[in-house]
Amino acid sequence: MGIYLDYNASAPIDERVLNEMIDVYKNAYGNADSRTHDYGENARKVVEEARERVARLLNVDKGEVFFTSGSTESNNIAILGLKEYAESTGKKHVITSAIEHKAVLSTVNSLKEQGFEVDIINPNEDGRVDINEITKKLRDDTLLVSLMHANNETGVIQPVKELGEILAEKGILFHVDATQTCGKLVPELKELKYNMLSLSAHKFSGPQGIGALVLRKKRYKLPPVKAIMYGGQQERGIRPGTTPIALVAGLGKACEIAEAEYKENYASLTAIKNAVIDLIEQSGLDYNVNGSQDYCMPNTINVSFAGVESEALMLSSKQYCGISNGSACTSHDYSPSYVLKAMGLDEDRLSEAIRISWGSKLDKDTMISEITKLLDVAKGLAG
């Protein structure tokens, strides 16, 4: 199987997170919304401690944190949950980018089918959305701008800080998909201005199946987001359904670890990236890195090797490393990446692109050894 290098799809769970979850499964198995016995109270304490941990990581109030099943659900609530407000105010214009996750793109397209106007902005060839292209589209009836913090395929960091400042002044709602950056770009997230933010635990060594939607208060009021499902008043009515106590605890522990270790993690990720880039440069292969490295996550590189089809490379090197050619949500086929296509890359670079993503605890020497083998395979395929 080789080493796992698809952390942007899902990161291995941290053993400390797993141990905390096991303890909760064993000792806090009540329903957090049961009010008549201590078992419910104990479960509720676990949930609220986790909520505080998430809030500390993001520098928000714990009353602004709502647990969901992950970023896909958070994105859907953040966008579809504004529909009632949009119809009551007449603000039915939404702006997003062409490189968003399908959880955003499919959701805004569903609004378009319901009479909303949607502007979708293409990035530049470097993978970064031009903030001026967004601001030119702003209107009096603009309801929402939704932009990811960093792209899951290229790792390119988007200008959410600058955009947040502009939208705050104009009073336009801003949603940030922080799936790839939560737990990694910790200081940046603490300082961002936004109204809504989505995150998933499994992208930073927490469990799969749990995430959060952060709704920032303004003058003590939450954004006008309504539930899009019905069945209970859990999470103050924003997200009904029995709270998965152990998963919530796992998310909280992952946030606590990230808060304590993000500096050393960032340094480790960067050191590994520098080593990978050096290996690629020294390989003798003809290649193109897809996406600006001036604005890029330290754990991601998207690269096209000339004359080497990505499918062939992935299959021929899987005994050395597990890599991908894009989002896990579209990996059932090998069609060209819509993200890279939106960047305007030519057909060859599209078909040759692979994504390598890693974690901070990965041994650098092992990484160098296996990437060297990957590059040897690529040389053989390049002929």
Rank of each mutant, 00 (worst) to 15 (best):
I99S: 13
E100A: 14
E100P: 14
K102F: 05
A103G: 14
A103E: 06
V104W: 06
V104I: 14
L105N: 04
S106K: 06
V108K: 00
S110F: 05
K112D: 04
K112R: 13
E113Y: 13
Q114V: 05
F116E: 11
E117R: 14
E117C: 14
V118T: 13
D119Q: 04
D119A: 13
D119Y: 09
I120N: 00
I120S: 01
I120V: 14
I121A: 04
I121M: 00
I121N: 05
P123I: 10
P123A: 10
P123H: 07
N124S: 15
N124R: 15
E125G: 00
V129E: 00
I131D: 02
N132I: 09
E133Y: 12
K136T: 06
K136H: 10
K136N: 01
R139K: 15
R139W: 09
R139I: 13
T142I: 02
T142K: 01
L143C: 11
L143V: 06
L144P: 13
V145T: 02
M148L: 14
M148Y: 12
A150G: 06
N152T: 15
N152W: 13
N152S: 14
G155D: 08
G155I: 06
V156E: 08
V156C: 07
I157S: 09
Q158N: 13
P159E: 05
P159Y: 10
V160H: 04
V160W: 00
K161S: 13
E162D: 11
L163P: 02
E165I: 04
K170P: 06
K170W: 12
G171H: 12
G171F: 02
G171V: 01
F174N: 03
V176L: 06
V176F: 00
V176Y: 07
D177A: 05
A178L: 14
A178N: 11
T179W: 02
Q180V: 02
T181W: 04
C182E: 08
C182W: 10
G183R: 02
K184L: 13
V186R: 12
V186H: 01
V186M: 00
P187S: 03
P187Q: 11
L189S: 05
E191D: 15
Y194G: 00
N195S: 09
M196G: 09
S198I: 09
L199E: 06
A201E: 04
A201N: 08
K203P: 12
F204P: 05
S205H: 15
G206Q: 04
P207E: 12
G209I: 03
G209K: 01
G209D: 06
G211R: 00
G211K: 03
L213C: 06
